[in-house]
Simulated scan of single mutants.
Amino acid sequence: MNVEDHFGISIRNDETECVLTVGDLVALIQSRIDAAQIAACPTLTSFLRLRSSVRELTNDLMLRIRTGTRVVDMLNRTQRRQLWAQLDDILGTAAPGLRRPAILRKLLGFSATTTFVIAFLASVAIDVAILPLTLALAAGATLALQIITIPLRSIPPDTAATFGAIARRMAGISVATKQLHLRTDEEILHELRPIVAATLGTDGSKITRTTRFIEDLGMG
């Protein structure tokens, strides 16, 4: 996801299976950048496709949206969930996940904190030996609340809050929308190396084209 955000691309699941080395990822990124050099405004094409989907969801064939229009201002909760299901198919991979409403996230955080505090105080008051049990019960209750509220996730993440942001991610299936100044595989590798190093917590000097993500970098 860090690579996708940095280069403005979307990597399909079938492509991910073929990226075994850093060189494979460099080649994939370069293909997207090269395609962007010859494509005729791919983001506009994606936006028009997105607008068509939104119009179908709202049953309004004349609906007007702009790239800066926020999704939450145009679609209701059910429509947003339907759009996100379509995006999974369009992108060939999971779209950035919908979030719970802000007030619900705060309530869940407060509930989790309160539950663990009560579990700790109860074990101290009764018998410290039961602390592992009370903490396990608190963790179970917190997990249950998270699962129960999954259907309430309907708020787009900041990276996909507007229709323009979604269109750019859709365009990333075929072209890069960022870092278009990079021309050679060496320049791309230089840009990619610190991202991989920071994400996987490894020494950047060990990252070369032949470095394997699983065998050499422990990615799994």
Rank of each mutant, 00 (worst) to 15 (best):
P132S: 08
R70A: 08
S174R: 12
L200E: 11
V175Q: 15
A198D: 09
A136Y: 06
A40H: 08
L61P: 12
A171I: 01
G220L: 13
I118Q: 05
I33N: 00
I150P: 05
A165R: 03
T67V: 09
R77D: 13
A36Y: 12
I103K: 04
G218D: 00
I118W: 04
Q37L: 15
L135F: 13
R80C: 07
S52N: 07
R80P: 01
R66H: 15
I130D: 11
R12A: 15
L189T: 01
I126A: 12
V128K: 00
R99T: 00
A161C: 07
G218M: 14
T67W: 10
T202G: 01
G164N: 03
D185Q: 15
V26R: 01
A94G: 09
A161D: 10
L87C: 04
M219R: 14
S205M: 03
L25E: 06
T16I: 14
A165K: 02
P42F: 09
I150T: 12
D89N: 09
E15C: 03
D216W: 08
A160V: 03
A139H: 15
G68H: 07
D14P: 00
L83T: 03
F116Q: 04
R49D: 13
E4F: 10
I118R: 03
L189A: 08
P101N: 13
D5C: 04
E187V: 14
T113N: 11
F110C: 08
E4H: 03
G172Y: 11
T208D: 10
D127H: 06
T43D: 05
